[in-house]
Design a protein around this nucleic acid. Structure first.
Lengths: 199, 199
DNA sequence: AAATAGTTTAACCAAATGGTTAATGCAAAC
DNA sequence: GTTTGCATTAACCATTTGGTTAAACTATTT
C-alpha cells in the first residue's frame, strides 16, 4: 500500500490546517507530518495559499452534500429528515473539528465560497417546501427551517469547548451527551409535523 | 472626551483580534489602529498572549449572560423564551463576527475556558427544567433543548458566509433573512409548548 | 528649577517563516 | 551504460514579527 507523495502531503496538510487554521499552520509542521522535505510542498503545490485552498475545497465538497442520497430514497418525510439529521451527526462525530475550521476559514476569506457550487441546498429546500405544501410539515419558511435544522445539528460541535464547559460536563460526558442528540432533535422536529409519526 | 491609552489599546485590540484571530492579528496593526507606538502595547500588556487573553475574557463575559435579567421578570414561560431569543439575536445582529471568533478561539486554546465562570447556564437550565415540570414545555432534556435553542439563534451568524452563499442570497438579502429569524425560531418553540400561547 | 516617576518613542534584535536554489538521487528511455 | 527528466534534499535568503532597550518627553512634587 504505497502512498504517493502528493497524497501524503494532502493527508498531512488536512490534519495540520484543520488543527491550526491557515494562520496558525506552519509549512514545516506539514512537511514533518508528511515526513518529507519542506521544499516538496512548494514543488507540488506552489504556495501555502494554494495548498490551503486545495485542502479547503476538498473538505468543503465532501462535507455539505451526501444528503442527496437520502432524499432520493422512498421514505416518509419524517424518515428522510431523520436520515439527514443522522447523516450529519455521524459525520460530525467523526470530524468534530471540521465544521468550525470550515466556517472560520470562510469568515477569514469569504472569497473562497465563490468557487463552491451553490446549488447544493436547492434539493434540500425543495424537499422541505414540498413537505409543507403537502401539509406534512407545519407552515414554516423552508430556508429558515433548514438553518434551524442545521443549527441544531452543528452547533453542539461548533461550540464544543464552550458548551461542554458551560454544561459542566467532562469530555467523555459531553461525548455521551452528543450521542443522545439525534433523539432530542427528532423530538423537536416531530412536533413540527401534522401527524405524529410514532414507531 | 479624552480616552486613556489603555482604553485605546483595548478598543483597537478588540477590533483587530476579532477580525483576524490570534494568529492572524499583528501587534503592529493593533498599534496602528490605536494610533500609538507598538512598544506601548507591551508596556500596558506584557505580551500578545496576555493582551489577547484580556480581550477574550472581556468579550466572553459580556456575551454569554445578560439573559438572567429576562429570567427574573414576571412573565409567562413563552414570553421569557422569546425574551432570551430576542436578546441573543439583537446582540448577534450588532456583533455578527463575535461568536465565530469566540468559538474558534476556544477551539484553538480550550484552556481559556477554565477562567470562565461555569454557572452561567445553570439558571437557564433550571428555568427550562421548571417549565417542563410544570407541564408548560413538552418533555425534553433541558440541556439538549438549550443547545437547540442556542443553535437556532447562533448558527445563522456563525455560518454567515457559507449560509448566505448556499441560500444564494446577497449580503443585504441575508440581512433581511436574519431579521425574520426571531419569528421562525418562535414558531418552532411554540410547537414545543402544551398550550398555544397566542397573543 | 531641579528632581522624580510615569509615559511614549525610535531604533534595534533574534527568531521564525514562507519560499528559493543548486546539487543529488533515481528510474526509465535510448 | 549513458542520457534524460522528474523527484528529493540541504542549505540558504529575505521578510516579517513579537519583543526589548535606552533615550526623550511630560507633568507633578519638592
Amino acid at each position: 500500500m504505497e502512498v504517493s507523495t502528493e497524497e501524503k502531503i494532502i493527508q498531512a496538510a488536512e490534519k495540520i490546517f484543520v488543527r491550526d487554521g491557515f494562520d496558525g499552520a506552519r509549512m514545516q509542521d506539514i512537511a514533518n507530518e508528511a515526513e518529507i522535505n519542506k521544499a516538496l510542498l512548494h514543488y507540488y503545490f506552489r504556495s501555502k495559499e494554494k495548498l490551503f485552498e486545495h485542502i479547503l475545497q476538498r473538505k468543503m465538497k465532501d462535507f455539505i452534500p451526501r444528503i442527496q442520497a437520502v432524499l432520493r430514497k422512498e421514505m416518509s418525510v419524517m424518515d428522510k429528515l431523520e436520515g439527514i439529521v443522522d447523516g450529519y451527526l455521524r459525520m460530525l462525530s467523526q470530524n468534530p473539528r471540521l465544521p468550525i475550521f470550515l466556517l472560520y476559514s470562510t469568515y477569514r476569506n469569504p472569497a473562497i465560497m465563490q468557487h463552491m457550487p451553490h446549488e447544493i441546498f436547492r434539493d434540500l429546500i425543495a424537499f422541505i417546501d414540498d413537505a409543507i405544501q403537502k401539509k406534512q410539515l407545519k407552515k414554516l419558511d423552508p430556508s429558515q427551517f433548514l438553518l434551524s435544522l442545521l443549527g441544531m445539528c452543528f452547533f453542539p460541535f461548533v461550540a464544543w469547548p464552550v458548551a461542554s464547559h458551560m454544561l459542566e460536563k467532562s469530555e467523555s460526558e459531553y461525548v455521551a451527551f452528543l450521542k443522545g442528540r439525534k433523539v432530542e432533535i427528532m423530538k423537536v422536529i416531530r412536533e413540527l409535523a401534522y401527524e405524529t409519526d410514532s414507531s
